[in-house]
Computed example of a mutant assay.
Amino acid sequence: MPSPAVDDYLKTIYHHTEWQDDRITPSQLAAELGLAPSSVTEMVQKLAAQHLVTHRPYGPIALTEAGERRAAAIIRRHRLVETWLVREFGYGWDEVHDEAEVLEHSLSDRLLERIDERLGHPTHDPHGDAIPDASGRVEREPFVLLGDAAAGHSGRVLRVSDRDPALLRSIEGAGVSVGADATVQDAATLRIAGEDVRLPAEAASAVWLSA
């Protein structure tokens, strides 16, 4: 049965490994969701009983095939809503996350598909995160985190984390956008269109480039 609480768990587990390979631990999941570890342990056991995750005591958590399908479906809703709000209603990319958190649970499947059609079946949201298609498939390409990129590395800005709205505004104000061609000068400086763009130090762990 649909459950916002279950969907939030699955979505968080799914998102954790989109831009790095390490699986999420129960303590990390508790921190991400802002919940007590005991509450998370209880819910993970319930998810495992529903065959949505696999987990051994004190070990990392992984989605099963069924869990990944369900997570991809709710993430598809969230990211389509974010894209819709930016394109159709003029929201800033720093404003859409909380709105999408509410709307993702209330839109009918029919309306969601009409939104997808109107937007031209986008493959990525305003922050560069992949939007799963109706079957759960996503389009991704090799990437490198800005903080891990060597000086001189050139690539497109693939993604900017939406975790911190203030950081998003700072990065946008500096002139960085998803899709921009950039060359790494150092972990806080990109050369874009012949100009050196200085970013906040936090951008090193919030901006991804094509590899």
Rank of each mutant, 00 (worst) to 15 (best):
A73E: 03
A73I: 00
I74C: 01
I74V: 14
I74L: 01
I75F: 09
I75Y: 05
I75K: 04
I75M: 09
I75W: 06
R76Y: 00
R76H: 03
R77P: 02
R77L: 00
H78Y: 06
H78T: 01
R79D: 13
L80D: 05
V81D: 11
E82V: 06
T83V: 01
W84I: 03
W84N: 02
W84K: 00
L85T: 07
V86P: 10
V86H: 07
R87I: 02
E88L: 05
E88C: 13
E88P: 06
E88F: 02
F89T: 11
F89M: 15
G90W: 00
G90M: 09
G90F: 03
G90L: 08
Y91H: 15
G92S: 15
G92L: 07
W93R: 10
W93V: 12
D94Q: 10
E95K: 08
V96Q: 04
V96A: 12
H97K: 14
H97R: 14
H97G: 12
D98H: 13
D98F: 09
E99W: 13
V102P: 04
L103G: 03
H105W: 05
H105K: 09
L107G: 08
L107N: 09
L107F: 11
S108C: 06
D109F: 03
R110P: 02
R110L: 11
L111Y: 11
L111I: 04
E113F: 00
E113I: 00
E113W: 03
R114F: 05
R114K: 11
I115D: 02
I115T: 02
I115R: 00
D116Q: 06
D116S: 10
D116R: 00
E117F: 01
E117A: 10
E117G: 02
R118M: 08
R118D: 11
L119A: 05
G120A: 05
G120D: 11
G120V: 07
G120L: 10
G120Y: 02
G120N: 07
P122I: 03
P122E: 09
T123V: 09
T123M: 06
T123I: 14
H124I: 00
H124S: 10
H124P: 04
D125V: 10
P126F: 13
P126Y: 10
H127W: 12
G128V: 01
G128H: 08
G128N: 06
D129T: 15
D129F: 14
D129G: 07
A130F: 08
A130Q: 09
A130I: 02
A130V: 15
I131C: 05
I131D: 00
I131Y: 03
I131A: 02
P132V: 13
P132L: 13
P132F: 08
P132Y: 06
A134N: 12
A134W: 14
A134P: 04
G136L: 05
G136C: 13
G136I: 01
G136M: 00
R137D: 14
R137P: 07
R137K: 15
V138C: 10
E139H: 14
E139S: 13
E139M: 07
E139W: 07
